[in-house]
Computed example of a mutant assay.
Amino acid sequence: MNKCDATNIIIDGLLGEESIPVKLRTERFFDNEKYSKVKEAVLFLVDEYKDKSMVPKDLALCFVDISNHFYVSENVFSEDLICKIEDAGFELSELANKLFT
């Protein structure tokens, strides 16, 4: 994986037309596979940008208010799945903090 590939995976997974937040809203589906790929890409970029003072704007945009995109309706998902989805949102927020600091 390289920076460009990792950035594209994150953009697709968090902002794209088939992104995780879009699937949660429209298809009522949590895409575990896509989440794993996004997480792997973020972890890769955390290491790549650890000594840099800036990250690309398009990458930063992916994480704006990210945890709110992972709050879902109790009427749609089971309680266990809601916890898993919300934990994913929190985890992405924590990874974003590592990426940007």
Rank of each mutant, 00 (worst) to 15 (best):
N2D: 15
K3V: 03
D5P: 00
A6E: 06
I9L: 10
D12R: 07
L14I: 06
L15W: 05
G16E: 02
E17P: 04
E18R: 11
E18D: 14
E18V: 08
I20M: 03
P21C: 08
K23D: 03
L24Y: 07
R25Q: 11
T26L: 13
E27P: 08
E27G: 04
F29R: 12
F30Y: 12
N32T: 14
E33T: 10
E33R: 08
Y35I: 03
S36Y: 04
E40A: 13
V42R: 00
L43V: 12
L43P: 05
L45P: 01
D47P: 01
E48L: 07
K52S: 15
S53T: 03
S53Y: 01
P56E: 10
P56Q: 09
D58G: 04
D58E: 14
L61S: 13
D65M: 07
D65Q: 09
D65G: 02
S67N: 08
S67L: 08
N68M: 09
N68P: 02
F70K: 06
Y71E: 12
Y71V: 15
Y71W: 10
V72M: 09
V72A: 07
S73Q: 10
S78A: 15
D80P: 04
D80M: 09
L81G: 07
I82A: 00
K84A: 03
K84W: 05
K84R: 15
I85Q: 00
E86V: 12
E91K: 06
E94Y: 12
E94Q: 14
E94D: 14
L95I: 10
N97M: 13
N97Y: 12
K98A: 08
K98P: 00
L99Q: 05
T101Y: 14
